[in-house]
Every structure is written in C-alpha cells, then in structure tokens.
Design a protein around this nucleic acid. Structure first.
Length: 417
RNA sequence: CAAAAAGUGUGGAUUAGGG
C-alpha cells in the first residue's frame, strides 16, 4: 500500500500522470484501497496539465469508493478548467460548489480570478474579488501576488503598485515571488529602477527565480557585465543556476554581440541535463541565422533534431525564417511540411513568418494557401499579418489593394498600429 | 501527527519605420 501510494505521488509530482494512473489501476486491482490524499493527488495531476476530463473520471471512481469531494478537489478542477481555457465551465463548477455544501476558499477564488483575467474578463475578475471579501474571505499573499502580476502584464503599472502598498498595509509581507513579479513586470516597461526603489523598503527573501528575474532584466538592458556579476554572486551564495539562468545569459551575451563568450558558456552547460531544453539551443540558432551563419545554424538544427531534445514550434519557426531570409524559400516550405508531419503545430508566429517569406519570394499561391490555413486553424490574421500584406502591396505598387486590405482590417476588427 | 492533497513569479521566435 505504501509503496504504491508513494510511487503514485512521485509520478504526479514529476508530471508523469499517465504512469501514475497506470500504477493506480494496478494498485486497485490488488485490492488496495487508495486513500483520499492519493485520489486528490491524481486528480490534481490531471488538472495541472489541463486534462480535466481524465481528472473527472478519477473523481467518479473516488465517489464510488465512498469519498466526498471537498474544496481541494473542487479547486483543482476549477484550476484545470482555467488552465485549459474553459473558464465558462470553471465558473459553472464554482457555482455548483455551494449547492453541494462546499464553500470556496481563497485558493478557489484565486484560480478563478486568474482564469477570468487571462481570458480578458478583467471586470468579472475584480468583481469576484469584491464578492470574496464581502463573504469574509480575506486576500492573502498569493492572491496579491497574482493580482499584481496580472495588472503588470496588462500594462497597469500604477494599479499594480497600489496593490503592492495595500498588501503591506494589511500586514502581508512581500516575498521572493512579489520581488520577481515587480522586477519582471516593471523591468519589461523599462522601470527597473522603480522596482528596486520599491523593494529597497522591504526585506524580501531571495531565491533562484528572483535572481533569474534580475539577471534577465539586466541582459535586456544590455548590461551583460552586470548580469555576469550577478551570476557569479549566485554561485557564491549557493543559488544553483538553472536552465533559465543559462538561456537568459546566452541570449543576453549574443544580443550584446559577445559571441565568443556566449558560445563558450553554451558549450560549457549543454553537455549536462540542459540538453533537453530547447530554449538555449533556439537562442543560439536564431542568432546564427540572423548574422548570416546559415550553414552553422542548419548544422545545429540537425543536431537538435537528431538528439533527444524536444524540438518545438519556436525552433522550427526560427529555422524557417532563417531559410527565407537567406533566400531559400523552397527549403523553408519543405521544413514547414516536415514540421507538420512531425505533429508540431504551427502558431501565429509561424504563419506570419511564412506569410512574410512567401510575399518576399513573390510566391502568391503559397501566400493564399497560408491565409486559408490561418483562417481554418483559428490563428486568424492579426495586426502583424495585415502589416506584412499591406507592406507587400505598397512596395509592389499596388496601393489600391493595400487600401482594400486596410478597410478589411476594420471590418474584421483587427486594430491597425 | 504524516509517505501524501489545491492557487502566484524567471529564459528562445514574427511585420514596418529614422539616421
């Protein structure tokens, strides 16, 4: 019983839910009764990967075994629906909780508030917060951190800072999560100094993520030497650098033109477990493409393809773009087909790259094909797609077609920039 | 009390434009 329970927990924590479920079935077939905690773990495991339907199957089994769903189970499910973008259903489940004698707590509210926010329903998110407080449920540190992050990502810096002060008035002490939220959020708006100013008045704890946030912000400001200094400080203080640290540093060094340093660091860290992370490879690949070292880039691309490293849509998009920019539209087209055959799903970046590439190669048939694809896959043309086409028509002297497109933008509700 | 249950933060890619 303990062996099964511990192993199932382990698999769930490692994100290997399917294996956990396999063991779970074996466990039950041996007439061991999983306890409530094990059910909850497995349900949450499925929810965290957005697979609520499989989670519900487990809930069914759990109820048959005589357990009753509590607030933890409901929160997991609501979180799962939100992560899968099914906020409507999440809201319904939330509404059904009370009827089943289960009161939502601050965790439940946080899941749903974030879900509303991510789907653009800001008003409802704030309204829900109000309702929560009205019911006597008090916002805690995690909820404040969540709200501040949401506000920053929406560009509402002043409001985020107001909440930062408000939480302290309520006796909540900002932690390392608050710190990285401020550094990243304000840093992206070029306000790193405001973040430092705000944080200097509180004593936040530090962790690796907080260090990484600073480090990546410094890199984006072009302060690579300071970033390296911070990296050395991390080593001294015992914060083990991770794949985020390394890819931020490699990207920063490349963008600052310090190619030798970047490649040196890249080669130093990639033999380790990091090889399974595509980000750092893609950063280098993109750089090589953009400085015209196409051969080296393609060599690297093939190396990644043949390794165990998962190659994702970004890696393909970067490579396709590189092939277009180096005047090889046929190879780019081939790679796009190969990507689809491998089951890697193109996104709006990919389509925009293809659109621009085919426009510049004057391959009108392919342009039409991509536009059809965009409509059928729901990655419908956005502002960048229209800009690409408008620019193409203008440069081709087809101003009237560009004007037609401009009107079409308005009609389909895409905002010109 | 425990082997064990839910929410927050960090890294890579797309168009155009001036000198």
């Amino acid at each position: 019983f303990f062996t099964f329970t511990i192993a199932i927990n382990g698999y769930c924590l490692a994100g290997r839910v399917r294996e956990a479920r396999g063991l779970f079935k074996v466990m039950r077939s041996k007439a061991y009764a999983p306890n409530f905690g094990t059910f909850a773990r497995l349900i949450d495991g499925f929810c965290r990967i957005g697979d609520v339907d499989d989670a519900l199957v487990v809930v069914g089994t759990m109820i048959k075994c005589g357990h009753v769903a509590n607030v933890v189970i409901f929160s997991s499910l609501i979180n799962g629906y939100c992560k899968a973008g099914r906020v409507r259903v999440a809201h319904e489940v939330f509404g059904g909780m009370e009827k089943r004698g289960c009161l939502p707590n601050v965790v439940t509210y946080t899941c749903l508030i974030k879900g509303f926010w991510k789907s653009g329903r800001f008003g409802e998110a704030l309204e829900l917060w109000g309702k929560m407080e009205a019911k006597g449920c008090v916002a805690d540190l995690v909820l404040y951190n969540t709200l501040i992050d949401c506000l920053f990502k929406q560009g509402r810096y002043k409001d985020g800072i107001i909440l930062f002060h408000e939480m302290q008035k309520k006796g909540l002490k900002p932690d390392s999560v608050t710190l990285s939220t401020l550094v990243t959020g304000l840093g992206k708006a070029g306000k790193l100094f405001s973040a430092i100013d705000l944080l200097s008045k509180v004593n936040c704890s530090l962790d690796v993520i907080a260090c990484n946030s600073f480090l990546s912000c410094l890199c984006k400001l072009g302060c690579t030497s300071q970033a390296l200094e911070l990296y050395n400080n991390m080593l001294d203080k015992g914060y083990a650098p991770d794949r985020y640290t390394y890819s931020a540093l490699v990207t920063g060094l490349l963008q600052a033109g310090r190619e030798m340093d970047a490649i040196c660091l890249y080669e130093q860290v990639t033999p380790e477990s990091l090889v399974f992370d595509s980000h750092i490879h893609t950063a280098l690949l993109d750089y090589l493409m953009k400085v015209g070292q196409v051969h080296k880039a393609m060599e690297l691309f093939r190396k990644i393809l043949n390794s165990n490293c998962p190659v994702d849509v970004v890696t393909f998009t970067v490579t396709i773009q590189g092939l277009f920019k180096s005047g090889r539209p046929e190879e780019a087209h081939e790679l796009y087909k190969q990507m689809c055959e491998l089951g890697v799903v193109p996104n709006s970046y990919t389509y925009n790259v293809l659109l621009d590439g085919f426009c510049k190669a004057r391959d009108i048939e392919s342009v039409k094909m991509i536009l059809k694809k965009m409509h059928s896959t729901g990655f419908g043309p956005d502002t960048i797609s229209f800009n690409t086409l408008v620019n193409f028509f203008c440069k081709s002297g087809l101003i009237h077609l560009a004007c037609d497109l401009f009107r079409e933008m308005m009609v389909v509700g895409v905002v010109p920039d």
